[in-house]
């Protein structure tokens, strides 16, 4: 009998332990929970060099998305290393977010109406304006999509990609075979080894996959872009404190670029004369930065850790990296508004 009582007590304890998600919702913001935990749990892709990639040789994470995770950790804790990265497949990512397994997704996730409404999540500011492209074998000699009737197409499952390619090719009356994989590595291997004629994904991902291929010269990314893919952070709906923290951390990197503040020259801006810059860096009495629940100097921490948006871009995916994504090529969407791009952070005051 005693054993049964003990069992029941254990069950009751277990059941209480199993509802942290629900309890957190009733209480304060996720920000408090993250602070109490001491680390930020960031959902990333992990298989796309340049965006998020785990290097087993150095045991380190790197990439564009990873840098935003670091920026967020720097904003919250003042320490960019307080991040736990959780690599997620396209299939796992939303469930991981919904169940509270990760605090935020920086995982090349496209902002769509359906996801924004029905999935119970919200999207932060777009960090990368992308579009879906097609990569073909150079030997094929194809230059446009209409030459690809009857082709085999390798794609990732659980993405907007498979919907876009199906829609594009069917609406043009092209026949095709779709081979959906769950992992990027499988997709690229199938393409390299001749299972498919076409590998389709976001253009930035294609560049990343191509750069890590054995023979990048044998692959060509077609010029045609078949969709809009605004990629940015995603977090749970209904927690505006946490949303503000994520959003303004991203905006901080863009605003820093507007002011020309970099990781190197930030010290020369501290204690300067420009009131706009001082406000941005959280200096002076009653700093506006404190209003979102972070340390007023969080912008300084972010910039010291990862630099401004331009630095993040050039370091991970820019023209001098294997990905060679020229920031001003094409429409140059991923530039500041003042340079003709789409990056337009709200007013910092």
């Amino acid at each position: 009998m005693k054993r049964i009582i003990v069992t029941l007590a254990l069950l009751a304890a277990l059941s209480l332990a199993m509802v942290p998600g629900a309890l957190a919702q009733d209480g304060g913001s996720l920000l408090d929970e993250v602070r109490a935990r001491g680390t930020l749990i960031c959902g990333v892709n992990g298989q796309v060099p340049g965006f998020s990639f785990f290097d087993p040789d150095t045991n380190e994470w790197s990439g564009f998305d990873v840098d935003f995770c670091k920026a967020l950790a720097a904003a919250i804790f003042g320490d960019a290393t307080n991040v736990e990265y959780v690599p997620l497949t396209a299939n796992e990512r939303f469930t991981a977010l919904q169940t509270g397994q990760v605090d935020v997704l920086f995982r090349n996730t496209t902002w769509t109406l359906q996801r924004d409404s029905e999935f119970g999540i919200d999207f932060g500011p777009t960090t990368y304006y992308d579009g879906q492209g097609l990569m073909v074998s150079a030997a094929l000699g194809a230059t446009e999509i209409d030459q690809l009737d009857g082709a085999s197409v390798c794609t990732l499952t659980g993405t907007t990609t498979e919907l876009n390619i199906t829609e594009t090719l069917t609406s043009r009356g092209l026949s095709f075979e779709l081979v959906p994989f769950e992992e990027s590595s499988q997709t690229i291997a199938a393409f390299e080894e001749g299972r498919c004629d076409i590998l389709t994904s976001d253009q930035s991902q294609l560049a990343g996959l191509r750069s890590s291929a054995a023979d990048p010269g044998s692959m060509v990314v077609l010029g045609e872009v078949i969709s809009k893919e605004p990629l940015g952070p995603a977090y749970l709906e209904g927690d505006s404190v946490w949303a503000d923290v994520v959003n303004w951390t991203v905006y901080a990197t863009m605003t820093a670029e507007e002011f020309g503040i970099t990781a190197e020259n930030i010290d020369s801006f501290l204690g300067g004369a420009d009131p706009r810059v001082q406000r941005f860096l959280g200096e002076g009495d009653e700093p506006v930065n404190a209003l979102i629940g972070l340390d007023p100097g969080f912008t300084v921490n972010v910039i010291r850790a990862v630099g401004n948006y331009g630095e993040i871009y050039e370091r991970n995916v820019g023209i001098d990296t294997p990905l060679q994504l020229d920031r001003s090529a094409g429409l140059g969407l991923n530039r500041l508004w003042s340079d003709g791009g789409l990056l337009y952070p709200p007013a910092w005051r």
Partner: peptide, 16 residues
Amino acid sequence: YVLINNLLNNLDASRL
């Protein structure tokens, strides 16, 4: 009951 209740609570909390 705990399992189902937990599921429903969490779904509810994430407005699903």
